[in-house]
Simulated scan of single mutants.
Amino acid sequence: METIKKDILNYLNNKSFMDGNTQLNDNDSLTQNGIMDSIGLIELMDYICEKYSIEIPEDMLTPENFDSLQGITDLIVKLTE
């Protein structure tokens, strides 16, 4: 699970969605903190699908699953089990 979190953080840093000095807690809102916008979210979903060889069901495209590092990690874990 920690590997997934680090991977997502690296993705966010590499895509310039956040400053390298930004402190992001597991449950911080990516949208409310200005780290992610709607286009960034689509790019992140594409990255997750490709990186983890998964498809994200439409009913799992919810703010709870994509607005925090913990939500994204939990979703990936659930879909890769």
Rank of each mutant, 00 (worst) to 15 (best):
80 T>I: 07
6 K>S: 14
39 I>T: 13
52 Y>G: 00
55 E>A: 08
20 G>C: 09
26 D>R: 12
62 T>N: 05
9 L>S: 05
12 L>H: 01
36 M>I: 07
32 Q>Y: 11
54 I>C: 01
9 L>Y: 12
4 I>L: 05
70 Q>I: 06
58 E>M: 14
45 M>L: 11
33 N>Q: 07
1 M>F: 14
59 D>I: 13
41 L>N: 08
28 D>M: 05
74 D>N: 11
72 I>W: 01
56 I>C: 03
53 S>H: 13
61 L>C: 06
47 Y>M: 01
41 L>V: 06
27 N>W: 11
71 G>P: 02
29 S>K: 05
61 L>Q: 04
64 E>F: 07
43 E>K: 12
53 S>I: 01
66 F>S: 01
64 E>M: 05
62 T>W: 09
60 M>D: 15
56 I>G: 01
63 P>A: 08
51 K>G: 04
6 K>M: 15
62 T>V: 03
27 N>H: 13
48 I>H: 03
57 P>N: 03
4 I>M: 07
56 I>Y: 01
13 N>P: 00
76 I>M: 05
56 I>K: 00
51 K>V: 03
62 T>L: 12
26 D>L: 15
70 Q>R: 09
39 I>Y: 13
30 L>Q: 00
32 Q>V: 04
50 E>W: 10
37 D>S: 07
51 K>I: 02
23 Q>M: 13
47 Y>H: 06
63 P>H: 11
11 Y>N: 04
60 M>C: 11
13 N>I: 14
75 L>V: 05
38 S>M: 09
81 E>Q: 14
28 D>N: 07
33 N>V: 09
28 D>W: 05
41 L>F: 14
22 T>K: 15
4 I>G: 01
77 V>G: 04
49 C>W: 05
45 M>W: 08
63 P>Q: 15
67 D>W: 03
3 T>D: 13
54 I>E: 04
40 G>L: 06
6 K>A: 14
45 M>I: 15
43 E>R: 09
75 L>H: 03
23 Q>F: 14
42 I>Y: 10
25 N>W: 10
75 L>Y: 02
73 T>F: 04
48 I>D: 01
36 M>T: 02
16 S>R: 10
1 M>T: 14
50 E>T: 08
24 L>I: 12
45 M>A: 10
71 G>W: 08
48 I>Q: 03
68 S>I: 03
